[in-house]
Design a protein around this nucleic acid. Sequence first.
DNA 1: GAAATTAGATACATGGCTGTAGCTAATACT
DNA 2: AGTATTAGCTACAGCCATGTATCTAATTTC
Lengths: 202, 202
Amino acid sequence: MADRNTRRRGEELIKAIHDAVLAEVLEVGVGRLTMDGIGRRAATPRTTLYRRWSDPIEVLLDALYHQHPVEEPTTGADDLRGDLVRALRLMVEWALSPAGRAVAAILTDPKSAALVSEALFERVFASRGGTFTHTVLRHYADQGRFPAELLTPVVADIGEALVTKRLIDSGTPPSDDDLAAIVDQAILPAIGLGARGPKRPI
Amino acid sequence: MADRNTRRRGEELIKAIHDAVLAEVLEVGVGRLTMDGIGRRAATPRTTLYRRWSDPIEVLLDALYHQHPVEEPTTGADDLRGDLVRALRLMVEWALSPAGRAVAAILTDPKSAALVSEALFERVFASRGGTFTHTVLRHYADQGRFPAELLTPVVADIGEALVTKRLIDSGTPPSDDDLAAIVDQAILPAIGLGARGPKRPI
DNA sequence: GAAATTAGATACATGGCTGTAGCTAATACT
DNA sequence: AGTATTAGCTACAGCCATGTATCTAATTTC
């Protein structure tokens, strides 16, 4: 905390602290977050942290709240299957980012889960955990590419759910082929379109 | 630690400690587990814990390792749909149990996730996170009720994945109707059988 | 350039968990 | 009954995080 000739203030300092708390939570977990640890990593004394936040979890939630929003899935040139795969890939990228991992950690931590506000949940959690393929499916349903009544809440969740489970089970990020398998074998059948990809039964 | 006239030993004591660590992790989270806290809840001094385990996470993993296995899903009187719903209900029950919640907490905790042995993963994690509908689907595929080549790894995961996502998103346990919607709108279409239940599009 | 703001440094009492040690006493073993 | 185990109790030094207070100095604002 000594050998920096310039002194950070405002936005710049806060950004450094947000980065620090996200890095810290990846390393030690939510339950072992401390003001001390965050301060050490951000190279700022604890006193600076206490001026703005009252507790390590507040710092973490604030960091998540100020994350840049993820890219929105886009719909391309009438390519439902390709758009779905791309939407899932966006989701994977987010889930593997520090923010995505922090969200997973928070949701299973009793102390922090209780502190997640409605607003934060909307902005960071819900919108990312379940909106990727939905956007795409909505678009093609509106275009009449498949019966709109098949787009139920359950169906809108299939892709995200399978990607999540895959990440939990294996920890390794799914390849594009894996994502295509999810689209072909689970999503497309649910909206009444037969699968096109190859299948490897178990 | 005073007003117990009998003194626990061996199995009985260990059971009490296992119960204590599972209760503790539900309340404070993995990262805030302490030998002190576990001992307090089990009404035994820390020294007793140190005689067997070297740190709180060892206690937790040991507790999970000694959990009773969950009930296996059974296949009934040629009722694929009903068997699938029952399999998912078994999974919900397990996921909401102390052991199920502890598993979720462990998987997102950097320190403990690293300590999960292959054996424990097999016995407690993998077998529970992904085996419920698979058993049922395998049975009916063998009976020729649907094309066996449709039973891919992705398809075997659909039900469990959607239940997991639902538990993460809303925290509330799904009703039997919710489970039936998952079966009708996601699993059955994927194995080539049309849905039978009512649908509510979004 | 002077005043106001705010980061950085240091200190301190408090409290909790750690890991170990040594003792007492209940239970099991033979 | 006598012995071996092992739970329960107490104590202790060490470490780390907590909050708070106080001072300094860098940076912004006017």
